[in-house]
Design a protein around this nucleic acid. Sequence first.
DNA 1: CCCCTATCTGCAAAAGATTGCATAACCCCA
DNA 2: TGGGGTTATGCAATCTTTTGCAGATAGGGG
Lengths: 180, 180
Amino acid sequence: MALAHAIMTALIEDDLSGYELAKDFEASLGFFWNASHQQIYQELRKLAEKKWLNKREVSQSGKPNKIVYGLTRAGQDALAEWVYGTTKTQAAKDELLIKLYNLSGDNAAHLTSEISGRREQMMRLLYLYEKIRLRHYDDPQTLPTRRKGVYLALASGIAQGEQFLAWCDEAMELLATIEA
Amino acid sequence: MALAHAIMTALIEDDLSGYELAKDFEASLGFFWNASHQQIYQELRKLAEKKWLNKREVSQSGKPNKIVYGLTRAGQDALAEWVYGTTKTQAAKDELLIKLYNLSGDNAAHLTSEISGRREQMMRLLYLYEKIRLRHYDDPQTLPTRRKGVYLALASGIAQGEQFLAWCDEAMELLATIEA
DNA sequence: CCCCTATCTGCAAAAGATTGCATAACCCCA
DNA sequence: TGGGGTTATGCAATCTTTTGCAGATAGGGG
């Protein structure tokens, strides 16, 4: 049920359309919970049926009309209740690490380049994170309560990302010693 | 297809039964790729049908008989080929961080205790990791090639875990400043 | 005018994962 | 003899996620 609650979380401050939510998931909440637009639209329909969200169509000029969703009182309650439940431990799933179990002279160069690609990707992500942090979360102590939570999520992403860069460096160094 | 390849990876050095594989997934490979025994048994059947694994029944005394699977030549080839493919970037999914987006005076204490629970869990895991590292991977430079890869996976787990502990501390500190 | 891109919404099939249940052999201990 | 634990394998239903496709509106550029 976490996707449903992630969507509702995204709707706490603003009402959004499915399209806007999908953008948001790419740029913010999605750092911590991926979802494709197909999943989002389907979940929105279910949530509206359950009366946790309300929907209204908004006419736009210059673009197709959109359907904007907002949290209902029932939705707010369900979300607040969900936060109190116990959280499943994160499911560890990383193909790259499994591939490393298969390390050999033959594939060492390939794995090095995969790691290097991931490293670059992470650099770009960290750049984005840092930009957001500097702009909106520079002084966590003074943030309003809810924003402190968002800050902590961001801080988690940043710390994990930086740790990942360091690991990539160690990995590439060790892989460089392997002969084909 | 990653589960299939994770299973085959576990079978590189030893032939194993479904039950033993499930244990392994709890204690080693599973650090980086979770799977339940139901998933494992089903996947084993599929892999045997594809001829990537062979199976043989082994009689045991004192326990029920077991079905032991081993990599075929075709399986080895498929696995080696898979390593060369491009790796999907890890899907980020962490309920806890989404919950933090919902931080409020009401739930701060609850989230603190969730984080504290996770911290403890991670401490236990790190203890296990360290034990393995000290026993089998103490001097990575001198390991045979494949084991170097396994070491890097382990090192990734350790670094991530340690980073997580530090984050938990920062989070709990900031959460402590929030009033109900 | 036509194509490209962006906005916007969705269906449907397949693959993957979780949950709950079921069964059975065998041991130990009371 | 019966209950509890470990080893051992699996089915079935459901839920979640991915993948591929589809179609409509509208602006801008050539």
